[in-house]
Nucleic acid binder design. Structure first.
Length: 953
DNA sequence: CCGAACTTAAACATTT
DNA sequence: TAAATGTTTAAGTTCG
């Protein structure tokens, strides 16, 4: 346990990553990718010497290390790494590599990890033994403080910085300053690793530690991965993996692969190591993820972190962390040199901290100097020579894909087999940590390493932020993933997995099983389609049309929901206002106030309305409705002449809501009273003043609602009264207004219609201008005919009766509505039914989930078809809106312009049609609102109703 | 309480 | 043959 823990911790603060890293040693050139950075962070593989110090000064050493290391250029990077990966406080470790390596290709590595955890650990142990110092520090810091996984990234970063302070004196100063300057000079030689300029990169990283996964880079990386599994990571600093064999090839005997190993022990051991090897690791040659490798005569140290300290371990002094223990020679300073990755220069560099300096490529480098490390750079500290080996370069030469460990291996490989075996075993003993890591043994050797069972992360190993499952649905997740990472050809399943892991690191750490859900969604959800076939499987893409449609539906639903909510509030407000404004009705109010009966009525009301609508439709009462609507619009416009600084949009929204409220209330009241016919028309004809009062109240209520209370009263009751008087006289006038049929009112319509965000956006698009009432008239005409305005007399009574009788259930109502509609359907679906239908349709569609039932299909076609013309229209409108809205929508991903392909539905209507459709939509929305209101209308309405009734009567 | 949406499993088929 | 990939079905969960 200890070992494991230690190792893990030491390597990874976060823990999660560590295991992987442990197992696999890949040497990466420091790529800058965020991913890598994240994952990789610096775990210094070797560091693990761990066990020893676990407790102690973790903070110091680790911090220092990281800080120092990175500090120069990398500070940020360090932070990032820390953040991203699982850094620990120490900041050292994070062997997160595996995380990054999501791809199948990487899977090997991962597998290896799992399998070889032991091996790795063993190696670590070896190292630790040899290199106690380093690990100790790390471990200490980790073990003690961290205990667990996550120290907040910030902390880590901070720590790192602090650490610098602590120990840094030496390291930092020298390395830091020197590096930058010197490095530049050396850059050429430096490891180019093809990484992008570090600065930008790491800054980014730093900025978004948490975001690591999300980083934009990832996508590219992922994509790259497709082509080159490893490649993806290349950008980043992810450690490259290579098999230990490779290492073996090199000089000496078995290098101790270990990352962890430290100390003289390592040296000492070497000889022994072989024996260890004999013990053998788990079979294969474990691949080891590492950024670089230090080949000593008797052992090999894998640089698995971005910063490693080379020196003489002081057993007494744990304050000094030593990743690579060069033995007891006094000629070697406890902190003699440090190898770190300079993000600025994109290469590893060596800073000489020890007073005695060192030889680099046979050139003496004094204390305080930093030199770039190239592949094969020879270094001699004291009497100990070793060589710095970059996996990457090796690979790069080949241009190997990341996966091809072989390539890299070719160069590197060689030795290890033995080593691997050796190390792992040892580690095994040490490490027990992973719960399930059992897998071992896979043979990775040459070909395909058998998959290793996925590593099981302990809670501690998982960064806090990645411990909880994202709330996003699979469909949304897949959509996002594909949008972000997919190429024109689509994404393979494995790529999708990788993309998801990148986007949602939770899936890096969680148990398998989600992949099944992913596949399930890809297959069943119509949002996804097979683009082309590649290899074993398909490349998946998005069905933007379907998605767009779905989005619309969702939006619509949400809007409707919002509208309903608003309507409900407005009603309440209205009632209040009315009570206040209409003192005369007080007595009635009291009566009205009885709210008890509300609900029963609601449904009835809705039904009634539906019936009315249907009836109206049937009877061609449109004229009355239109007339009434015109009147209402006109009055509303008049009432709101004084806009009080409110924008068109706001006014439009207010008018829309006010109209809806008025209609609803009046209708409901009429129903309640058993008034047959078209209550609005009747009221308009018989008692316009009263109607105006209602309108005024509705406007104020709507105003308060729309402005969120900023403006509580847009209309002066007195004025209203006056208007009412006029209204009576002017009734005829209304028509004229109405006449202006369509004008490009979209904005208004939209605004009026939904008054929701979409509309708003849309509104913005429009040029500011005087509010055009005509727009309202337009809307109202069509829609109301269908809905609200049930022509006065005729059907009403029946409807009312129905409404009353009909059992209350919203959905049933739908049915009822459908029934009623059956009759009315002819006119426009806009009726309540249409709403209901649309809703249902939307639901289906929204059911993005179409997953299971294949709703998707139904949704797209079905919903539309079912939804009646109205729904179709809505959709169309939605598209239009979607375009408009797009920008605004936070969900860029989700929203798509349907530019390219339009659904049949969409296609049906042309632009103009689209406008019409929009109008209709709006109308529908309004209707929906009305309906909603209707449904919701409760006792409050009664008051109004009473008033209305009285007035009417 | 119901149903839709979504998740999770599992069985099975297909492909490489 | 083993894995990966796809498809389908079913059961469970959540939410409105």
């Amino acid at each position: 346990m200890d070992r494991e823990m230690a190792i893990v911790e030491s390597s990874n603060h976060l823990g999660a990553s560590s295991p992987a890293t442990d197992t696999q040693i890949t040497m990466n050139p420091p790529l800058i990718n965020e991913h890598e950075v994240k994952g990789t962070t610096e775990s210094i593989t070797g560091s693990s010497g761990n066990e020893i110090p676990m407790e102690a000064e973790q903070a110091n050493s680790p911090h220092i290390e990281t800080g120092e290391e990175l500090s120069k250029s990398p500070d940020i990077s360090v932070e990032k790494e820390i953040e991203n990966t699982i850094t620990d406080d120490n900041g050292n470790l994070k062997l997160e590599l595996p995380d990054n390596l999501d791809n199948a290709d990487f899977s090997k590595l991962l597998e290896f990890d799992a399998k070889n955890d032991e091996a790795l650990f063993n190696s670590n142990e070896l190292l630790s033994q040899t290199m106690n110092t380093v690990n100790e520090i790390n471990i200490e810091g980790i073990s003690d403080d961290h205990n667990e996984e996550v120290t907040p990234r910030n902390n880590i970063s901070i720590e790192a910085v602090i650490s610098h302070d602590d120990e840094k004196e030496k390291t930092q100063d020298n390395s830091g300053a020197v590096k930058v300057e010197e490095i530049k000079g050396f850059e050429e030689t430096g490891i180019k690793t093809a990484q992008p300029t570090t600065d930008a990169i790491y800054t980014e990283k730093n900025e978004s530690p948490a975001e690591e996964d999300d980083d934009d880079d990832t996508p590219s990386t992922i994509i790259i991965e497709k082509n080159n599994p490893l490649h993806t990571r290349n950008n980043s600093i992810t450690p490259i993996m290579f098999q230990q064999h490779e290492l073996l090839t090199q000089p000496s005997q078995h290098s101790v692969t270990e990352n962890n190993s430290t100390d003289a022990e390592t040296f000492e051991r070497k000889p022994s190591e072989p024996s260890n090897e004999s013990l053998s690791l788990p079979n294969e040659q474990p691949t080891i993820f590492a950024y670089a490798r230090l080949d000593f005569q008797s052992f090999t140290f894998y640089v698995q972190t971005l910063h490693a300290i080379i020196g003489r371990r002081s057993e007494n002094d744990f304050s000094h962390k030593v990743d690579v223990n060069l033995g007891p020679s006094k000629s070697i300073s406890r902190r003699h040199a440090q190898i770190f990755y300079n993000f600025g220069t994109g290469r590893f560099e060596l800073s000489i901290i020890g007073k005695n300096g060192a030889f680099v490529d046979d050139i003496f480098v004094e204390k305080g100097n930093t030199v770039p490390l190239r592949n094969r750079t020879k270094i001699q500290i004291g009497q100990i020579p070793f060589q710095f080996i970059l996996p990457e370069q090796e690979r790069n030469e080949d241009s190997k894909s990341p996966e091809n460990p072989e390539v890299t291996e070719s160069e590197i490989k060689i030795k290890d087999l033995k080593k691997n075996e050796l190390k792992p075993k040892k580690k095994v003993s040490t490490v027990t940590k992973p719960k399930k890591p059992q897998a071992k043994a896979p043979v990775k050797k040459d070909k395909k390493p058998p998959k290793l069972p996925k590593k099981v992360y302990t809670l501690e190993e998982i960064p806090l932020e990645y411990r909880t499952k994202p709330t996003i649905s699979y469909s949304a997740m897949l959509t996002t993933c594909i949008r972000k990472y997919s190429t024109a050809k689509g994404m393979s399943l494995s790529e999708i997995y990788a993309g998801i892991r990148e986007l949602f690191p939770y899936y890096k750490y969680c148990a398998d099983g989600w992949q099944s859900s992913v596949r399930h969604n890809l297959s069943l959800n119509k949002s996804f389609r097979k683009v082309s076939k590649e290899g074993k499987g398909w490349l998946w893409g998005l069905d933007e049309e379907y998605i767009t449609e779905r989005e619309r539906q969702k939006k619509k639903q949400s809007e409707m929901a919002i509208a309903k909510a608003h309507a409900a509030q407005l009603k309440l407000e209205q009632q209040q206002h009315r009570q206040q404004q209409v003192p005369s009705q007080k007595g009635k109010k009291d009566i009205v106030s009885q709210k008890s009966p509300v609900y029963a009525r609601k449904q009835n009301i809705s039904q009634t309305l539906a019936a009315n609508r249907a009836a109206s439709n049937k009877k061609n009462t449109a004229s009355d409705n239109q007339r009434t609507m015109k009147y209402l619009q006109e009055q509303l416009v008049i009432l709101t002449r004084d806009r009080k600084g409110l924008s068109k949009q706001v006014i439009a929204a207010i008018l829309t809501q006010a109209l809806a409220m008025t209609i609803n209330q009046v209708t409901q009241a009429a129903k309640n009273k058993g008034i047959t016919g078209n209550p609005l028309t009747a009221l308009m004809d018989k008692n316009p003043q009263h109607l105006n009062l209602i309108l005024a109240a509705a406007v104020n209520a709507a105003t308060a609602k729309v402005t969120k209370g900023e403006v509580k009263q847009l209309v002066n009751p007195e004025t209203t009264a006056a208007l009412a008087a006029k209204a009576q006289n002017s009734k005829p006038i209304t028509q004229p207004i109405v006449q202006t049929p369509n004008v490009p009112d979209r904005p208004i319509t939209q605004s009026s219609a939904s008054a929701s965000s979409h509309n708003i956006n849309y509104m913005h698009d429009k040029p500011p201008g005087p509010f055009d009432p005509s727009s309202l008239s337009r809307f109202f005409q069509p829609r109301q005919n269908a809905r609200v305005a049930s022509p006065a007399a005729a059907p009403v009574p029946v409807t009312v009766a129905q409404s009353v009788d009909i059992p209350p259930k919203p959905k049933p109502t739908l049915n009822s509505g459908g029934e009623s509609e059956s009759g009315s359907s002819s006119s426009t679906a806009s009726s309540s039914e249409s709403e209901s239908d649309s809703d249902s349709g939307s639901d289906d569609g929204s059911g993005s989930g179409s997953d299971a039932s294949g709703d998707g299909s139904s949704t797209s076609s079905g919903s539309e078809s079912e939804s009646d013309s109205g729904s179709e229209i809505d959709e169309k409108e939605d598209k239009g809106q979607s375009e408009d809205v797009k920008h605004n929508d936070t969900e860029d991903d989700v929203i798509h312009n349907n530019n390219g392909s339009s659904n049949g539905h969409d296609t049906l209507e042309t632009d103009e049609e689209g406008h019409d459709s929009k109008r209709q939509k709006i109308v529908e929305e309004i209707d929906s609102v009305n309906i909603a209101d209707e449904e919701k209308i409760g006792g409050t309405d009664n008051n109004i109703n009473i008033a209305i009734n009285s007035s009417i009567k």
